[in-house]
Amino acid sequence: MRLIATICAGLMAASPMVAQDRETLGYGRILTNDYFGDNQDRWRSGSYAYSIVRGPEWQGRAPTALGAVLEYRIRSEIIAPSMLSGSGSNDRAYVGAVSAGLHTHLSRGGADISMGVDLVAVGPQTRLADVQDWFHNIVSAPTISNGVLANQVGNTVYPTALAEVSYAVRLGENTSLRPFVEVQYGVEDFVRVGADIVIGEIMQNDLWLRDGPTGQLYAGVESDEPGTGFAIGADYAVVGDSAYFPASFGTQAQDERFRVRAGVHWRLGAGISYFYGVTYLSEEYVGQAEGQILGSLKLNFSF
């Protein structure tokens, strides 16, 4: 809690000094769903993130001042057992999670730094189970059994701090290697290390945001230049406490995870861009039969 309070105090203290120079720089959005990957409605079933990024005029890299660039982020996620009813519906607790947060992005000594705080609400209070049931009724997909609903993670709000440090190493004129370290404390505690390779001229001067479930990079601020780019990445995490695996349910979380991902970015011009990525997630709990493959989409139209 002291870490979270310190980050909040730092952002609030820094923001007024640069607020008069701030403008809307871009919008980050990404939809992730297992339907776009292995077509299985299970585990890390779906998520959506949306951000508004504000700051001084973008110069191809974040400024050095803490709080100069602010990202206002909202996010939702559904985590489900392997089946929504019947056999396999009790392998892990159902989770509906909704969060809102404030993050800042800056550059220091060649490193790109992101840090911020989210309030993550979980449980029936999010009404995500109702939304999923409603949608599944429309498309004639399986609905959630009463047993799964009764045993979902309970209503709680978790203040959660998240920080990442990455360093872009130019491998060529249009290719960069971006090793990173990411730390989170709150709804899930973990330390993660990994790297991404970004390829393409359009990939070198954007502000990159990281999707929570997959680690896919998607643009929060992007240039208007048309082109195609690629991102390939992998990471490894050591996981501590996780609210997504309550002791009362009985499922034990794996204390190590890894992810492998690849994606392609298309940009047709100012305000029109597309992204599709695919990610493999390793097993998250003891007894999980296999990993899973998720697909991520971004369709950006600004007129």
Rank of each mutant, 00 (worst) to 15 (best):
A195W: 07
A68E: 11
H105A: 13
T24C: 13
S176V: 08
G291T: 02
N137A: 12
D112K: 03
G96K: 02
M12I: 13
L70W: 04
H265W: 07
Y276R: 09
E256S: 02
T156K: 08
G240N: 15
F301G: 14
T104G: 09
N33F: 02
G200D: 11
A163D: 05
L25Q: 13
S273E: 08
R54Q: 15
G269R: 14
I52Y: 01
L162E: 10
I4E: 03
A68K: 10
D211C: 07
A121S: 15
Y218G: 09
R44E: 10
D255N: 14
R267Q: 11
Q216N: 04
Q20M: 07
I113L: 13
W58T: 02
F135E: 02
D133I: 05
R75Y: 14
Y27R: 13
F36D: 11
V221D: 06
G291H: 11
M115H: 09
V193P: 14
G172E: 12
T126K: 13
D241A: 15
A150P: 00
A19C: 01
F275H: 13
G116E: 03
Q204L: 08
S296G: 02
A243T: 12
S140D: 10
G147W: 00
S166M: 08
N33S: 15
R108P: 00
L177M: 04
N39C: 07
W43I: 04
E77K: 06
S89P: 05
A13R: 01
L106A: 12
H105N: 14
P226E: 10
F301R: 11
V221A: 09
Q184G: 01
N155L: 04
I144S: 10
E201Q: 11
Q292L: 14
H136T: 11
L119D: 01
W58H: 05
A231H: 09
Y218Q: 07
L25R: 03
V183N: 00
A243W: 15
G269D: 04
V221F: 09
G186R: 00
G101L: 05
R73G: 00
I30L: 14
V120E: 01
Q152N: 04
Y27G: 00
S89Y: 08
N137K: 14
S302I: 09
D41S: 07
G28P: 02
A111H: 14
S223Q: 11
I30H: 11
G67I: 05
T156V: 04
A111R: 14
L207Q: 04
G116I: 08
E222S: 03
D224I: 07
F36I: 13
D41Q: 04
R127T: 12
Y244E: 13
V264M: 13
T143P: 00
Y280Q: 03
G200W: 10
V239M: 03
F190H: 02
R178F: 00
N300T: 05
R73D: 05
N205I: 00
N137M: 10
A13Q: 01
R22M: 07
R61F: 12
A262E: 03
V157C: 02
T279Q: 08
V117K: 00
T104L: 04
H265V: 11
V238K: 15
P124W: 01
K298F: 03
G220C: 01
C8F: 09
Q216M: 10
L84C: 00
Q216E: 12
P16F: 11
A80M: 10
A289L: 07
V183T: 10
L102I: 15
I4R: 06
